[in-house]
Design a binder for these strands. Structure first.
Lengths: 253, 253
DNA sequence: CTCTGTGAATATCTTCACAGCA
DNA sequence: TGCTGTGAAGATATTCACAGAG
């Protein structure tokens, strides 16, 4: 099955574009904050500002979910929180395992945001026998030998890989064989998985390199400008994780 | 405010599309691995497989950099490593500060991939006075009061924020005021920055939510199928930022 | 012949701009 | 009115498919 070329048509899962799905968590976070402040409704303009996107995009995104707003008024915060949560599948509980309990794995285990939204750390797994039984974030680390059993006993379908790069593919294979179909990969490697398994990666080094690229370009273009330029407060804001506006590129003063 | 309409033409930094820039680090990693194995040349097909992308995309990406390949042969590994490194600005040294030395900050400080490619941890900064002076990853933590001085003395233009969400914007403002123009944000908040400052974010919780969305859909579509995968159903795959597709691409033995 | 480089065709995403409901 | 919802336009990104260099 080497050179796949199964060429799926990119298949936006149901009818919701992938780009929209990636923004839903952002909206949800902003809405949750509003909800905690007991704000009853928001306009697309306000919510968009809070989420760091433009309002037309937000409205278009919501239009894929249905018509949950009221013209002339805005969106009901609580209702929207519920709808987005449901759409994202956060109304159910997702047991997650973290494999590789080094510095990063431990940090992830301790990360509060984990538990907050439907995700529950079902187990911590590490290959080092010395770690076995040692509690991290209140959860005892288990040995890799138990991996398959843990996955099955807990009905885990989401796995987080925080091992060194060299071990990642092997761990991945075992997770998938045991039934995991979604993987969040922190190891700096490309993982091969069968069709039907989702992989997302988080890679510090790649992010820094992308920043360096733009940084270098800034230095080159402003070619003489030294330090902090208090650009007229223009306060654009970092939108998506990816393409944020930036790029002064001969800014039109 | 929001509706600035400054409408810069999206300005792909020079002429290199953002999507291509985001993949260059991936290619570079694959090439570096080949280089270490002393492989002299690669075809677009092989390199694409190693990087987890399709070969047409890779060739198109490289075409933005110039014509560095040889028809009928492939690409010279060493040469390409050099060209991509230069394009990404990795031939120079980038001092980086990490602000917020909790579990995550400490993990990042210890992360090897940091130093590997032109990035150097110039300083660790934390608001907790009790942390001051304590070495993490061999680097003594300094107090937030020193932030501006550290940035200026070291000529830092890239900052990493690993503080709690509540402190992130404030830290961000100080970094920017001190001269930082690229920020990697690990805090689960949207940061506002002036024009000309790049922000990229890494957010565990968002990634998990995106996986949950697809996971839910899988469960729904296969609707009767119990455990193991092997769904014939339509497949989406890791999209967005992690454009490693399904990519079986097993090494051609 | 093989494999790059690229125009052209698609597919996807973003933004505009405005009809029309509350 | 004020704001949502959305067709249509515009911008990016991906993929195809093949001319042509080596």
């Amino acid at each position: 099955m080497a050179t796949g070329r199964t060429h799926r048509p990119a298949t936006r899962s149901r009818g919701i574009p992938e780009a929209t799905v990636a923004r839903l968590p952002l909206y949800l976070r902003a809405l949750t904050a509003l909800s905690e402040r007991s704000v009853p409704t928001v306009s697309s303009e306000e919510l968009a500002a809070a989420a760091g996107v433009n309002s037309a995009k937000l409205r278009k995104d919501f239009s894929y979910l249905g018509s949950y707003g009221t013209r002339g008024v805005g969106y009901d915060v609580e209702y929207l929180v519920y709808q987005i949560s449901r759409e994202l599948g956060l109304t159910q509980d997702w047991p997650v395992v973290i494999v590789g309990i080094g510095n990063l794995g431990a940090a992830l285990a301790n990360y509060g945001g984990f538990a907050s939204r439907g995700f529950r750390v079902a187990a911590l797994i590490d290959a080092d026998p010395a770690m076995a039984g040692k509690p991290v974030a209140g959860i005892p680390v288990q040995h890799t030998d138990e991996l398959e059993k843990i996955i099955q006993d807990n009905g885990v379908s989401i796995g987080v890989i925080a091992t060194p790069a060299g071990a990642a593919q092997q761990v991945c294979d075992r997770l998938v064989a045991a039934g995991v179909t979604s993987i969040l990969n922190f190891a700096p490697t490309v993982l091969s998985v069968p069709d039907g398994v989702d992989v997302r990666k988080v890679d510090l080094s790649i992010e820094l390199q992308i920043l360096a690229f733009h940084e270098q370009r800034k230095a080159g273009e402003e070619a003489g400008n030294g330090a902090a330029q208090q650009a007229a407060a223009a306060r654009s804001d970092a939108a998506d994780q990816g393409p944020d506006g930036d790029v002064p590129a001969v800014m039109p003063a």
